[in-house]
Design a protein around this nucleic acid. Structure first.
Lengths: 122, 122
DNA sequence: GTAGACCCTCCCATTAATGTGAGGGTCAAG
DNA sequence: CTTGACCCTCACATTAATGGGAGGGTCTAC
């Protein structure tokens, strides 16, 4: 199938499909006229890419294990686990940082309730 | 004081001080030679700006209430509360989103423990 | 043979704060 | 009057995935 059809089937923009190729995540064959042709498996492949992107992984990280997970269950590809673990650490750190900011904001908001309402302009 | 001294006192780069001015957060006077001259109060002002930036507010948001909070307690400036509340909502939403991703990652990581270790290469 | 729907590449823009460097003034001390 | 430490403006780079447009080829149906 051509890029327009793959885009329609997956909901991923043509621009992004070309970007994934540039990043080594997709390798369509080229017809004599230069058009990209994708195998039917590309559709699942694109959905897989999207899934990992939604987990916050970069195209570079995804490229490290995509070939394997397309052929095996995720848990069989040993490149995957360390990426997940690192990402998990990053996420936890971000959550902590956001939690600190949240508490700080909540404290500040609380003070508004505890103080006179004669607020000043600008 | 000149920009180099303000930078040294606050630890904020000269580049950033000029950026804050561009964004309307600082308004040093200009000498005849074009040099920026900052009042002694600028030091506290810069620390205040940094504080709000660390809360995740944008320079645009900060500019909306900075003048007021420099003259009054934060709780007296009515521009502040809605910004805090909006930011708090954003933070909470981000935390939720990260939490979902975290759970997803943890689930995936758990499956590795529950499966055979004969992982495949690339 | 032409209209219209495809496809191609190349390149710029987005976001927000900051880094960096070129090219060039200012000023104080020697 | 030169050195060196300042200061200035302008402008590009950073990040990552995506949007968008220009300029142009291809293919199908009429």
């Amino acid at each position: 199938m051509k890029i327009g059809e793959l885009s329609a089937r997956t909901g991923v923009s043509i621009r992004s499909l070309r970007y994934y190729e540039e990043q080594g995540l997709l390798t369509p064959v080229r017809e004599a006229n230069g058009y990209r042709t994708y195998s039917p498996y590309a559709e699942e492949q694109v959905r897989t890419i999207q899934l990992y992107l939604q987990l916050g992984l970069s195209t570079e990280q995804i490229s490290g294990f995509l070939t394997c997970v397309l052929q095996h269950p995720e848990t069989f590809c040993r490149e995957v686990l360390p990426v997940y673990e690192q990402k998990l650490r990053e996420i936890e750190e971000q959550i902590e940082q956001l939690g600190r900011i949240k508490t700080n904001l909540q404290d500040r908001i609380r003070y508004f309730g505890a103080n006179p309402k004669d607020a000043q302009e600008g």
